[in-house]
């Protein structure tokens, strides 16, 4: 798959100071995907996201409104986790979901550092639901429904480079207004959905102690060790088995109940296997 380089990939910049909390983006999203009316359920998080609400407005201190949605990470944990590749980074950049592949293990929900993917807990045939950055609309050359709907341009669409530059420009122009940080620029590997804000946004992350390492990179050493471990273990076991078998054969001449010839030939053939592995 041919991916856009990180800078050229599509992105969304949300300026928390501009948002008036009208929830037009939420409505636009729901209408675009024909999402059901949402009733808060026992299993809902209090952040307003659900399988029928792919974006939500969270009210924070000082009358600020923060729009929550999938961050479309540059190195998404969900994509690395999904065993069947139902979650993928599309060529354009958005992290999209293929319900035909999904088997419902919900590992993606467990690993997302922002707690984004939601589940149809009330359905007999449930799917994982999350923002797909209006992937179908992007393909038609349109911008996402939410950024289009925003009446005050608090959330805007563009390429990641453009928006990062714009974010830094705004912070520089009004350093007193903003916290000097672009959320999503590089924490947890960076994301395609960026925020600038006058309030602390670390509440969007699960847990407080995050750094810039992406989640998939944490499991990489273990995953790389898989085949070597297998080969080493098979080799060691075959070797040890062979040596011990030899010793025992020398020591005892009778009363072995398993046919030794067979077992020793089996051992040597397995050594061949493990070398290939």
């Amino acid at each position: 798959m041919k991916h856009q380089p990180d800078g050229k990939t599509v992105a969304i910049l949300t300026d928390v100071t501009k948002c008036i909390g009208c929830r037009d983006c939420v409505v636009a999203c729901k209408q675009t995907y024909n999402l059901d009316k949402d009733v808060p359920r026992r299993w809902s998080n209090d952040d307003g996201l659900s399988s029928r609400n792919w974006t939500s407005i969270i009210e924070r201190e000082n009358n600020t409104f923060v729009r929550k949605q999938c961050r479309h990470c540059l190195e998404p944990a969900c994509v690395a986790a999904c065993p069947v590749g139902a979650l993928q980074i599309s060529d354009e950049g958005p992290v999209i979901y293929d319900s035909k592949k999904c088997m419902g293990c919900r590992y993606c929900m467990l690993v997302c550092p922002y707690g984004i993917p939601r589940y149809d807990w009330d359905l007999a045939v449930p799917f994982v639901r999350k923002c797909i950055m209006c992937f179908p609309r992007l393909q038609e050359g349109k911008q996402p429904a939410c950024t289009e709907a925003c009446p005050v341009e608090a959330t805007i669409f563009g390429t990641r480079d453009e928006l990062l530059a714009e974010a830094h420009r705004r912070i520089k122009a009004e350093p007193d207004k903003y916290i000097n940080k672009v959320w999503g620029e590089d924490e947890i590997g960076g994301s395609r959905v960026l925020y600038i804000s006058n309030v602390d946004l670390s509440f969007l992350t699960y847990g407080k102690n995050y750094d810039n390492k992406s989640v998939p990179s944490l499991a990489r050493p273990a995953m790389n060790a898989v085949l070597p471990t297998f080969a080493t273990m098979a080799g060691t076991m075959a070797g040890v088995g062979w040596i011990i078998n030899r010793r025992m054969k020398n020591m005892q001449t009778d009363e072995l109940e398993e046919n030794q010839d067979n077992s020793s030939s089996a051992v040597s053939s397995d050594e061949g296997d493990s070398n290939n592995g």
């Binding site: 999904c82 065993p83 069947v84 088997m103 995953m223």
Partner: peptide, 23 residues
């Protein structure tokens, strides 16, 4: 536990070797 248990065999044809769960 799986939401779509009839898709459990998907792991055989759809591969994601980066996933610990795949392993």
């Amino acid at each position: 536990d799986l939401g779509l248990p009839w898709n459990i065999w998907h792991m055989i044809i759809f591969w994601n070797p980066h996933s610990p769960l795949f392993e």
